[in-house]
């Protein structure tokens, strides 16, 4: 039930990030969610996009180093304790989170959406489903 994320290697210098976003804009690729991890000399942009295959293609044609990976997405009730309840379930399922980031849907006033990168995705997914959590599918994301 995982969804696909695309990660892009960026040098830590002015214009690198906008170089990527203008490429995606020119190719009419919609970014649903974006998170940046940075070190002193490089960064990694992680994106959820519509049409990931095309995104991967245009990025690699423009000489960006990119790779796709599996992540889990959940709708989180937009209320105090919403995220905490979700993370407690991760805890109970003994799932380790490498990183996570959030995005919102303008149409959906009740939920926020969270993306999780976990260590062992299959095992994590089973454990989370056992705790009563159902990750969003690619179709769900595409509809947002």
């Amino acid at each position: 039930m995982s969804i696909k994320q695309i990660s892009v290697f960026l040098e830590n210098k002015p214009g690198e990030l906008s170089g990527m976003t203008s490429l995606l804009a020119d190719s009419n690729i919609d970014i649903r969610a974006l998170s940046l991890a940075e070190t002193s000399d490089f960064g990694i942009a992680r994106l959820i996009v519509k049409d990931i295959r095309r995104a991967a293609m245009v990025l690699s044609e423009a000489n960006f180093v990119a790779s796709t990976s599996e992540v889990l997405a959940f709708a989180v009730p937009d209320e105090p304790g919403g995220l905490n309840n979700l993370l407690n379930k991760f805890n109970e399922a003994e799932v380790n989170i490498e990183y996570m980031y959030a995005f919102l849907d303008a149409e959906d006033k009740d939920n926020a959406y969270m993306i999780f990168k976990v260590t062992d995705i299959e095992k994590s997914e089973q454990a989370l489903v056992a705790e009563g959590l159902k990750p969003l599918t690619q179709e769900d994301i595409d509809k947002i």
Binding site: S7, A37, F42, K117
Partner: peptide
């Protein structure tokens, strides 16, 4: 230059 083969989305691994 970074190569596609080496790239992962994990900062620690690249470091």
């Amino acid at each position: 230059e970074m190569t596609p083969e080496m790239f992962t989305d994990n900062v620690g691994q690249i470091q």
